[in-house]
């Protein structure tokens, strides 16, 4: 299939799934449609020749993060809350519509006017080897900072989740 067909197929799917996600009353339905959006984004990464990121998007986002979210949603008994109130109040809806009308339309118009020709890509563009090479040469410091952040988060989550006795 041509790139354009894939772009509109998965781009459209991502937009529809995201809209579905923000409009659902039940967090469970939201989470499942967000998985669909993340998988379509992974497909778009593949179209953009980002092979490593395609795999990471599926593993980390559609896999690990969303499993964690679903796990928490099922752990918390939210049924009473879901049915109690309308999901969106009128004032909040007006605020959201205002932001989209003022900021969003302007920003999208600016993005639409960007013009660029696709670059000639080397054969190994987006491969594990090339991304890894950059991570461990020019971006070593950033990589190490993220490693320390991950370590800090492990400790923080254990402290947060421990039941106080």
């Amino acid at each position: 299939m041509s790139e354009r067909v894939l772009f509109y197929l998965f781009g459209g799917l991502a937009v529809v799934a995201s809209l579905w996600m923000v409009t659902r009353r039940s967090p469970l339905a939201s989470a499942l449609s967000l998985v669909v959006a993340f998988v379509s984004l992974a497909a778009l990464y593949a179209v953009l020749q980002a092979h490593l990121l395609f795999a990471i998007q599926l593993w980390v986002y559609a896999g690990a993060v969303m499993v964690l979210v679903l796990f928490v949603i099922m752990l918390l008994d939210l049924r009473a809350e879901e049915s109690a109130r309308a999901p969106v109040t009128t004032a909040k809806f007006a605020l959201g519509a205002l932001v989209v009308a003022l900021l969003g339309v302007k920003a999208l118009a600016a993005l639409w006017n960007v013009e660029a020709e696709p670059a000639e890509l080397p054969a190994d563009f987006g491969s594990v080897a090339r991304v890894g090479e950059l991570l461990f040469t020019r971006y070593t410091l950033q990589f190490e900072i993220v490693s320390i952040l991950l370590l800090a988060v492990i400790v923080a989550v254990v402290v947060l989740a421990r039941r106080r006795t």
Binding site: E3, R4, F7, G11, A14, V15, S18, L19, M21, V22, R24, P27, S30, A31, A37, L44, L48, V69, V72, I73, L78, E81, R85, P87, V88, T89, K92, F93, L95, G96, V99, V100, G104, A107, L108, L111, W112, N113, V114, E115, A116, P118
Partner: peptide
């Protein structure tokens, strides 16, 4: 060939949907 502007607009649309979700919903998980 898909233009760069189409990709950027797709990203912008998804970002705006996220902004609207953050502004309008009150359920912390959503």
């Amino acid at each position: 060939m898909v233009g760069l502007n189409e990709w950027l607009v797709l990203g912008g649309v998804l970002f705006l949907i996220g902004v609207v979700g953050v502004l309008t919903r009150s359920n912390g998980l959503i």
